[in-house]
């Protein structure tokens, strides 16, 4: 059974650090204003951002029955905090410089779960470092998912090339989330 409870101090520090790192400033306070951070603890720990009114219902009903889920799924804690697709949605407006913008073709392929090749990269944010996680945006700066930006040497041309490995993309809702 999954137990839903408030996040501990230690868990909050972890979540806070990850979110603030993405935004490059302290957004934790803003994101959690009027909301409670709830952990759903089963085999893994899921993190939910829960409006206070919804939390009050959890508080009243949990003795009778635990919910299936509640609020907005922000990510999971598995050692470190891993942000979810909707978590990315929330932070994306603060995190443009930690993202890359991809072409329409790149968008389509990425949403099919594929990696992004250099040809599809239109713009790289100023805070992006090779070897780090990046938010993948389309041309409207809508977050499509999360990738890892890497360089490799092209076997044919022996030129260094950039690639973004797909970690998580919104095509999940079509492939798995039905």
């Amino acid at each position: 059974m999954i137990i839903f409870r408030k996040a501990t101090k230690k868990e909050i520090v972890k979540i806070q650090k990850a979110l603030n790192e993405w935004a490059g400033k302290n957004i934790y306070k803003e994101l959690t204003s009027g909301r409670v951070v709830i952990i759903g603890e089963g085999r893994i720990k899921e993190v939910f951002l829960v409006p206070v009114e919804v939390y009050n219902i959890l508080d009243k009903t949990k003795k009778v029955r635990m919910p299936y889920y509640l609020g907005l799924f922000l990510g999971e804690i598995n050692g470190e905090f891993k942000i979810s697709l909707e978590g990315l949605w929330l932070i994306s407006k603060y995190s443009r410089e930690r993202g890359v913008v991809v072409s329409e073709k790149g968008e389509q392929l990425f949403l099919y779960g594929r990696d992004i090749l250099e040809e599809s990269i239109i713009k790289v944010g100023s805070l992006v470092q090779i070897g780090s996680k990046v938010i993948v945006f389309n041309k409207f700066y809508e977050p499509l998912g999360l990738g890892m930006i890497m360089k490799f040497s092209d076997k044919l041309t022996e030129q260094p090339k950039t690639i973004i490995k797909n970690i998580l993309d919104r095509g999940w809702y079509l492939r798995k989330g039905r």
Binding site: L49, V50, P51, E53, V54, I57, L58, T61, R65, P67, Y68, Y69, L70, G71, L72, F73, S84, L85, E86, W89, R170, Y173, K176, G177, R178
Partner: peptide, 21 residues
């Protein structure tokens, strides 16, 4: 219920507490 969670997540719905019962 799985589809419900997926749909509500995709749509950015926050004010729900869901019970399978």
């Amino acid at each position: 219920m799985k589809s419900l969670r997926s749909n509500l997540s995709r749509l950015g719905v926050e004010n729900v507490i869901a019970y399978r019962m």
